[in-house]
Design a protein around this nucleic acid. Structure first.
Length: 221
DNA sequence: AACTTGTTCAACCGCTACTGT
DNA sequence: AACAGTAGCGGTTGAACAAGT
């Protein structure tokens, strides 16, 4: 059994103080994002490396947008979630300035509920069968608002069809593409499949290593 | 004003993947 | 090939705040 990364009793936990933030920012500005494990000591922080990394990535990074999500960002998250499931880091990769944590939180607190309200099951992005017919109609018309006016082509990627190499990595949402009847194409995603491109692959190394028959997903957004 | 309930989001935890030896 | 250390990911928690009663 491996020891936890920060079993030190002197290690701070909980909310970061302004002073800690400043130390972390200053250190990373001068040294870059180097070895998180040794960073806290080098920067004079009583934190574990993991905590420093999270704080930097989710909060302190200068390229973070923060603030409310734009409608097109919401749209994109919903579409990407329909395709990828809870693979937040991949989704975040398509939204500049947004972090996986932020997107995950936003999904759980806003978008999930929004879809439910629209009569769409947020787990598989299908119109809920429990809804009365009138609400089905409402749901499908509401769904129009999810897709924008651009014409888009959607093809579920092989990665989503294939069984996940790791149960954690592909949620039931993405794997629901196996279902015979699914409504995802109605989302009208502008997604197409192509062979790997270093700049656009969602997870180039992993995809190439683990599923050589699977084309890497390309998103034209 | 005081209390309860609901919501948000930063941070933590446990796990897997990756990389070096 | 096997192991150990590190990085990164996604689920969960809990404090802070807002809204409702």
């Amino acid at each position: 059994m491996r020891k936890p990364c920060c079993d030190n009793q002197d290690t701070n936990k909980g909310a970061w103080s302004k002073k800690e933030d400043e130390k972390l920012i200053h250190y990373i500005r001068t040294h870059g994002e180097v070895c998180w494990r040794s960073l806290p000591q080098a920067a004079g922080l009583l934190r574990c490396g993991k905590s420093c990394r999270l704080r930097w990535i989710n909060y302190l990074r200068p390229d973070l947008k923060r603030g409310n999500f734009a409608e097109d960002e919401e749209d994109l998250i919903i579409k990407l979630h329909a395709l990828l499931g809870n693979r937040w880091s991949l989704i975040a990769g398509r939204l500049p300035g947004r972090t996986d944590n932020e997107i995950k939180n936003y999904w759980n607190s806003h978008l999930r509920r929004k879809l439910i309200k629209m009569g769409i099951d947020p787990n598989n992005h299908q119109v809920s069968r429990n809804l009365p017919p009138c609400q089905h109609q409402q749901a499908s018309s509401d769904r129009e608002t999810i897709s924008d006016s651009k014409s888009r082509v959607y093809e579920p990627c092989d990665e989503a069809k294939a069984p996940p190499h790791n149960s954690r990595q592909l949620s039931d949402a993405a794997s629901s593409f196996n279902d015979e009847e699914h409504d995802i194409p109605d989302l009208n995603l502008d997604l197409s499949v192509s062979f790997p491109s270093p700049s656009l692959s969602l997870s180039p190394e992993r995809d190439m290593q683990e599923n050589t028959t699977s084309p890497t997903l390309l998103l034209f957004i």
